[in-house]
Computed example of a mutant assay.
Amino acid sequence: MTTNDSPVLRVAGRPVGRYVTRPELPARLSPRPYLHPVTTLAGTAVTELSPADHPHHLGVGVAVPDVEGHNFWGGRTFVRDQGPIERDNHGAQRHSSFQLRDPGGFVAELRWVAAGTELLRERRTVAAAELTGTAWALDLTFALTNVASGPLSLGSPATNGRPGAAYGGFFWRARTEREAPRVFTADDEGEERVHGSRSDWLALAGATWTLVFAGATDATRRDPWFVRTAAYPGVGSSLACAERLAIAPGDTVVRRVVTVVADGPLSRAEAAALVRKAVGR
């Protein structure tokens, strides 16, 4: 269930995404605002919400599996030398207010709360812009400020002992189809080869759609890509890959990811051209 306080993004007058601010979800899913459904300009859905394989995957949003031991990702927690375990340690992202809101985007304030304590305060900026008659760009920036009384650190299953599982940060759960989507970068292809890379952009292509993800700041481009296609279709960033990401009291971590949402398959040259148009480089 959603509230009426859920803006619809529009591009060229067409609805392309809904931002759900206050979803009614069980605690183990780490409730948080998300974008779903997100569609191409032709109306093809390119997100999924709570799929059976991972009920805690919620469209497009920001999620971190370990904030000082609290799970803001949902599902089980990976514990070193024990593996994934069900724990009562889930946090929640709570929408506070909109600082700006119009059909082309919004600026929202969020509170990241766990065990009755606010740990992080987030400013999330989302903008939608037309690129061509068949492609548009979703520009998402999140700024996480440590408002706790002491230092915080962000972790992932990888930093807790599970190799290759450095997910956490921006995450897009894509549309599941009969065939796994193709994934490629400017100079490589396939899940095994592009997962963990720091490519300027990364494309995920289904039967009738293509998503092209690009880090739009130097800090964002330093984060490796987290990619899954065989088990499920999803792409995200890795805030904590080889080591935990420390945030001192009052400090802020900022990341910006721009995603091209296109109808039809894109070639490498077409994907790169749309990224240049969307990001301005």
Score class of each variant (00 low, 15 high):
119 L>V: 07
174 A>Y: 06
182 R>M: 05
108 A>W: 10
142 F>E: 09
146 N>Q: 06
110 L>I: 11
143 A>Q: 12
108 A>K: 12
204 L>T: 00
161 G>Q: 09
181 P>D: 08
179 E>Y: 04
109 E>W: 01
166 A>D: 14
114 A>V: 00
102 D>F: 00
134 T>G: 12
188 D>K: 02
180 A>P: 13
107 V>I: 13
118 E>C: 05
103 P>H: 05
189 E>S: 14
101 R>K: 13
101 R>P: 01
167 Y>R: 08
199 S>W: 03
114 A>I: 01
141 T>M: 05
194 V>W: 11
98 F>N: 12
148 A>I: 07
206 G>L: 01
110 L>A: 13
145 T>R: 15
194 V>P: 14
160 N>K: 13
179 E>C: 02
143 A>I: 06
124 R>H: 08
183 V>D: 01
174 A>R: 07
176 T>L: 00
146 N>V: 13
170 F>D: 06
118 E>Y: 09
169 G>F: 01
159 T>N: 09
119 L>C: 05
179 E>H: 03
127 A>P: 03
178 R>D: 04
195 H>G: 04
160 N>T: 07
186 A>G: 00
150 G>K: 11
115 A>I: 07
113 V>L: 07
99 Q>A: 06
181 P>K: 04
88 D>A: 14
170 F>W: 11
193 R>T: 13
89 N>W: 00
116 G>L: 13
182 R>V: 13
